[in-house]
Design a protein around this nucleic acid. Sequence first.
DNA 1: GAGATTGGATAGTTTTGCTATCCAGTATTA
DNA 2: TAATACTGGATAGCAAAACTATCCAATCTC
Lengths: 209, 209
Amino acid sequence: MRISELSTRSGVPVATLKFYIREGLLPRGEAVSATNAEYGEEHLARVRLIAALADVRGLPLSRVREILALIDEPAPDPVETLGRAVGALPPYVEEADDYPRAREAIEHAGLTYEPRFAAVRQLDSAIRAIEDAGLRWDPSVLSRYADAMRAVAGEEVAPIAEMTLQDAVVYAVLGTALYEPVMLALRRLAHHHLLVSGAVPPPTESAAD
Amino acid sequence: MRISELSTRSGVPVATLKFYIREGLLPRGEAVSATNAEYGEEHLARVRLIAALADVRGLPLSRVREILALIDEPAPDPVETLGRAVGALPPYVEEADDYPRAREAIEHAGLTYEPRFAAVRQLDSAIRAIEDAGLRWDPSVLSRYADAMRAVAGEEVAPIAEMTLQDAVVYAVLGTALYEPVMLALRRLAHHHLLVSGAVPPPTESAAD
DNA sequence: GAGATTGGATAGTTTTGCTATCCAGTATTA
DNA sequence: TAATACTGGATAGCAAAACTATCCAATCTC
C-alpha cells in the first residue's frame, strides 16, 4: 500500500507518518521507484502500536521509541527485556543510589527487591510523595494495595509462558499500559458508588472560612 | 514571610512562584507596602499542594487550577464537588453522548452508572483502547479488576465521613492522585516477582525474524 | 546613604509534537 | 500525450506548556 492508504487505514495523517519515519519510530516503506514506496501490514501494526501508546496513553515519543527498540532487538535476558519495556511507561522517576522506602515495603509485602527495576523507584517516589503530603502510610495501607495487586497480577501474567519474547514484550507493554486505566477508573467508580449509595455519608457541608 | 523564604521553604524558585501567582494558582501575598507582601503558612501549604499535583503527578497547571478552584469554592453538592475534583485528574477523555462499553461493565460490576462522572468516560475509552489493541476484554477480565478495586475503595473512602468538604476534596484528590502510583507500582512488582521467582516461566527466547 | 531585595510586569527560552510547504520525479487519467 | 494528482523526502514553521530572565522603581537593611 502507499502512504496515503496507510494513513486512512490507521487514522494518522500522512504528515505525521512522515514525521514518525523521520524520527525512526516507523521503518521506511520499501522503495519501489524514486517516488514510490510500498508499506505492508507490519507497518500498519506498528502505527497502531505507536498510536495506542502515544495517543491513548500519552507516552512521549522518546519512550515509545525505547519500547519499539526492545521489540526489534530484545535484550539477552527475557525478564530484563520485559522489565525495561515496562520501565518505559510512566511515571518517570530519576535513578538514585538506594530506595529505602520501597525496599521496606517490598520486603514486607514478600516481593522481590531489584533496584534496577523501574517499578522500585516508582514505588519509592510514590511513598515519598504520600509522606510529604501528610497522607497515611503504614503496613496496613501497604497490604491493602499489595494484596489486591498480587491477586490481579497472578491472572495477568499467566499467558506470557506460551509466547515468544517479541509477543510477550508487546503484551506486557500494552497490558500494563491499557489495563491500568481500567483499574483506576473502576477504583474511582467504586468510590463514587460508595458515596452515592449512601454506604458512606458524604462530608460535612463545609466550614466556610 | 517574604517570597524568597516561601521559595526556600517550598523548594520552588521565586520566578516560578511569581509565575504561579500570575496564573492565579497562588494568591498574592498581603501587600504590606508598595514593594513588600507577606506570605503565610496557607501559602506554603498551597505551594506544596501544587507541587504534589504538578510536579509529582505531572498534572497540567490548568487541571491543578480546577482542583484549587473546587477547594476554594466547592459546588453545592458534596458528591458533585468530589466527583469534579477527581475528574480533573488524568486521563483526560473527551465527552460523548453515550458510553455503552462503560455502562455494560458498570452494570455488570454492580456499580453506579452516572454519565457525567469523568471516571465513566475514562473507563469507556480504556475499554475501547483494549479492544482496538486486540487485548482480551470479557466479564472475567472485568471482575478480576472490579473485585480488587471494590475491596480497596471500601477502605479508602471511610475517613471521608468525618471531614469538612474542603478537607475531603483535598483528601480525595491527593488520595486518588498519590495512592494510584503505589498501586500500579505494586502491580508491576508483582508481575516481576512472579517472573523472577519462577512461578511463571519466562517467554520463549524469541523467534528471530 | 549604599547595596540588596521586593513585587510586579514583560519578554524570551526550551521542549514536544506535529503541520505546512516545497520539490522533483512518477502515476493516472482525459 | 498532456494535464493533473500524488509520491517520498527534506526543510521550515508553528502552537502550547511551563518556566526563566530581565527590568524597574520602590523600599528595606545595615
